[in-house]
């Protein structure tokens, strides 16, 4: 861990603040309106909502690719703007949805080194960071390969390695798990979770409601450019109407639980559901036999 770009085992994550932020595209389409949110240091936050709900706009405002029409966005104490673009870029890493947009150098090593070189680091430090990032993201064996010879999943990992090599204090990801196979998705999310546990602020736009409860602490639901709901996962998911308004659904396990058990609690992951079921069986409120062993019960009768 000492080799990591942060120089130690803990990361001092950034705090991100949206204050009355609004954004209107040049054609007149309003993408965000009056967003007031603070994402605290070390949070793992999921930004969810329907297509066109304002997720990508929000993330781009955060890194300074777009500039707010109203209000302001700040990272720690730095207001995101034209003048502070490079300062913010050094603090916040942004992972594009399509890795082909992000990987513009001919080889893997050159691409991972691009960011650290621009930070003005020495050759040895750049090499150290490239090695650490490549090993962390599982692309160390690919360092000398040309980008165009990689698979899509490998490109995603290389893109993340390039962002991590800059040693960001907050990580912004636009649908990082899209088009990944289940194993690659799990590996990517475990990596993000591990970095988040060390203090990195993670902000991630996604549609995957089954994935989010496994990793994220908080959720921001966007509907038509407004914040429909924001807070810890359990609170937001407890209110199903929020989700329907955002064209989302409950996690499958919560939906299944709603069907079988008329309970007020709503587990969001398989682990939570298992605990809840065991608790209910122990309290004698649930007889699982008719559900799990219908034949044997019928035969005994």
């Amino acid at each position: 861990m000492m080799n990591s770009p942060w120089g130690g085992s803990s990361i001092d994550g950034s705090t991100v603040t949206f204050a009355h932020t609004g954004f209107v595209y040049p054609g007149g389409v309003r993408a965000l309106d009056g967003v007031d949110i603070t994402i605290r240091s070390g949070d793992f936050t999921a930004v969810m909502g329907a297509n066109g709900g304002g997720k990508s706009t929000m993330l781009k405002l955060l890194v300074g690719l777009l500039h707010p029409s109203e209000g302001r966005v700040s990272v720690d104490d730095v207001e995101v703007g034209h003048d502070t673009f490079n300062q913010v870029a050094a603090m916040v890493g942004y992972l594009f949805q399509d890795p082909n947009d992000q990987l513009f150098c001919p080889t893997v090593a050159a691409d991972i080194a691009y960011g650290p070189e621009n930070l003005g680091l020495g050759g040895a430090e750049v090499e150290r960071r490239v090695e650490w990032s490549a090993k962390t993201c599982g692309v160390f064996e690919l360092l000398d390969r040309p980008i165009h010879a990689l698979s899509y999943g490998q490109k995603k990992r290389v893109a993340l390695a390039g962002v991590l090599a800059m040693g960001p204090r907050a990580l912004v990801l636009d649908e990082p798990s899209s088009s990944l196979d289940p194993m690659a998705e799990a590996a990517l999310m475990r990596l993000l979770k591990g970095l988040n546990e060390r203090g990195l602020t993670v902000i991630m736009a996604t549609h995957d409601v089954d994935l989010i409860p496994l990793y994220a602490h908080r959720i921001i639901l966007l509907r038509g450019g407004h914040v429909a709901a924001e807070g810890p996962l359990a609170e937001v998911f407890a209110e199903g109407t929020h989700l329907e308004g955002c064209d989302l659904r409950l996690p499958r396990i919560a939906y299944l639980f709603d069907i079988f058990c008329d309970e007020s609690t709503r587990p969001l992951t398989v682990g939570q559901a298992r605990k809840e079921l065991v608790r209910m069986v122990e309290q004698g409120r649930l007889d699982l036999v008719p559900i799990l062993l219908p034949k044997e019960r019928g035969g005994a009768a």
Partner: peptide, 13 residues
Amino acid sequence: RVYDAQRLRGGER
């Protein structure tokens, strides 16, 4: 998008 990606990794410097 490539230009944005370059800027975000300090390409302007």
